[in-house]
């Protein structure tokens, strides 16, 4: 009949009304007195020095990178988990090989210091 995702669309649209309605109501109710001092960025009470940028730290990027690899691994494990009841025993062996290779990847990342938050 209809798509099972239709309710998801309905829920998203209705849920969008919450921020929209709330923001609209707040815009009606609140005062609006802009002031040059209020508009400065917050830095514990002192003036900001320099532009807004952050020193490049590789560790942030490496965590996201390792996450991509494990995310794709999880995507492959989900269909296996659903079909597990109907698979013979060697399916377990095959998935053990899959997971073992990825554990090796994690161990490599660990030894090479990629997981250190410096």
């Amino acid at each position: 009949m209809q798509n099972e995702f239709l309710f998801v669309g309905v829920l998203l649209l209705v849920a969008l009304l919450l921020p929209a309605g709330g923001l609209g109501l707040a815009w009606l109710l609140r005062p609006h007195k802009p002031n040059a001092l209020k508009k400065t960025a917050y830095e514990c009470g002192i003036e900001t020095i320099g532009e807004t940028w952050v020193q490049f730290k590789v560790s942030y990027y490496i965590y996201a990178l390792i996450f991509v690899v494990f995310d794709v691994e999880a995507v492959f494990l989900f269909p296996w988990a659903v079909a597990y009841n109907q698979l013979p025993l060697y399916a377990l062996l095959e998935v053990s090989i899959f997971i073992a290779i990825l554990v090796f990847a994690l161990a490599y990342a660990w030894r090479k210091g990629a997981l250190k938050w410096i």
């Binding site: 109710l29 609140r30 005062p31 007195k33 400065t40 960025a41 917050y42 807004t52």
Partner: peptide, 12 residues
């Protein structure tokens, strides 16, 4: 309180 506070949007 949240609804009636002023919404301060910083510059930039």
């Amino acid at each position: 309180k949240m609804l009636t506070k002023e919404d301060i949007t910083p510059s930039g």
